[in-house]
Simulated assay, not measured.
Amino acid sequence: MGRASNTYMLPESAFTSPAELERLDKVNTALTVFFNGKLSFAPIEDTQPRRILELGCGSGAWAIDAASNFSKAEVIAVDINPIPPRPLPKNLTFMKLNLLKPLPFKKCSFDIIHARMVMMHLPQVEEVLQRVFDLLRPGGYIILEDPDNEDLNDEGIPRGPVGKEHLSTILNTLMQSLGAQPCIGRDHKKILESSGYFDDITVKKVCIPITPVEEAKKGSPEAKLGHSWKESWKTLAEALPARYSDQGLTKDVVNTFLTTIDDPNSHIVTALYFSWGRKKL
Results as ranks from 00 to 15, higher is better:
H114Q: 14
L53C: 01
L10E: 10
K205Q: 08
L55V: 03
E150F: 11
N91H: 04
G56Q: 08
L129N: 14
P221K: 09
A4R: 05
K107A: 13
L225R: 01
D199Q: 13
D79T: 01
S228P: 00
H188L: 15
P138H: 05
I268E: 00
L167T: 00
Q176E: 15
E231V: 00
N36E: 15
A14H: 11
I157R: 12
V33D: 12
C108G: 06
D79V: 01
R51P: 06
P158A: 09
P212H: 08
E222N: 07
K251P: 00
I201R: 09
L10H: 03
I64F: 14
H121E: 04
Y8R: 02
M117H: 09
I157L: 15
N265R: 01
L21A: 02
A180C: 03
E150L: 07
L103F: 02
R243C: 11
L258D: 06
L122G: 04
N153C: 09
P138C: 06
F198M: 13
D154W: 11
I52M: 11
E222I: 00
T16N: 13
P182G: 11
G179N: 04
E238K: 14
T202V: 15
Q176Y: 03
F41D: 13
P18R: 02
Q181K: 15
R116N: 12
E231N: 07
D154E: 12
I113K: 06
Q48C: 05
G277F: 13
E145R: 01
L258C: 09
W62V: 09
F41R: 06
P85K: 10
K217H: 07
D154F: 10
V206M: 13
K164L: 01
T256E: 13
E127A: 12
V206P: 12
D199G: 10
V213N: 07
A239D: 05
T47N: 04
L103M: 06
I208S: 08
V132T: 14
P182A: 04
L178N: 05
G160R: 07
D200P: 12
F15K: 14
E145S: 06
S275Y: 01
D46Q: 06
Y141W: 10
G156E: 09
E45L: 02
K190P: 10
T32A: 12
S195F: 12
Y273Q: 02
K280P: 00
L53S: 00
S275R: 08
V128C: 15
T250L: 12
I191L: 14
M175Q: 10
K230C: 05
Q124K: 11
L135F: 05
L152P: 05
E231Q: 05
P87N: 11
S245M: 02
W233T: 00
N172L: 04
M120F: 07
S195Y: 08
Q48K: 05
L55R: 02
G277T: 10
L152Y: 12
L249S: 03
C207I: 09
A4C: 15
V27Y: 15
P138W: 02
L192Q: 14
S245C: 09
A77I: 04
A14D: 13
M120N: 11
F110R: 00
L99V: 09
L174P: 01
K189F: 15
